[in-house]
């Protein structure tokens, strides 16, 4: 098992629900209640000082749990990468924001909220970023049609 996953599990066994290693990458599935603590611990104790990317994904309307949020961590010191994954159900797509840990998460979370519809609790400025503020629906959901419901008008 990946050393960071091992250390994390030793720190608090509740923080790690699953560890998967494939194609040279490690994915740690984290319960959504613990994500901020896990991120803060990885940042201060394990040198993951940069959040390279944060993105949401929709597995499809028939899947349960339906949404996942992926956190791609990078260290500017030892240059390793780690993926954290939080799985969310359709009825309750809420997860705590990590923008208090890394400021860069702010826009990534706004983008994920805008396109996938995951709601980040305690986010300082959670509003749409790419689509207009009066846009209806979340465009990257699988049940959102490619061409939209009707032509969008700016007027």
């Amino acid at each position: 098992m990946n050393e960071f996953a091992k250390e994390l599990k030793a720190e608090n066994a509740d923080w790690v629900s699953e560890v998967k290693e494939a194609l040279g990458e490690t994915t740690i599935t984290v319960p959504r209640e613990a994500i901020v603590e896990v991120c803060a611990s990885l940042k201060t104790n394990h040198g993951f000082d940069m959040l390279a990317d944060l993105c949401g994904a929709d597995r499809g309307p028939e899947e349960d749990p339906r949404f996942e949020v992926n956190y791609h961590l990078f260290s500017t010191k030892h240059h390793s990468r780690l993926r954290l994954k939080v799985i969310l159900s359709e009825d309750d797509p809420h997860v705590n924001t990590v923008s208090g840990v890394w400021k860069t998460a702010n826009w990534h979370e706004r983008e994920t909220y805008d396109l996938v519809g995951v709601i980040f609790d305690n986010h300082p400025d959670l509003r749409r970023i790419l689509l207009p503020s009066d846009f209806d629906g979340h465009a990257l959901r699988k049940d959102y049609p490619l061409r939209g419901y009707e032509p969008y008008s700016l007027t």
Partner: peptide
């Protein structure tokens, strides 16, 4: 699933 990052001219270009 993979995340691959390269050094593009403007910085880290990552693909998930």
């Amino acid at each position: 699933e993979v995340y691959h990052a390269i050094e593009a001219s403007k910085g880290e270009l990552g693909v998930y």
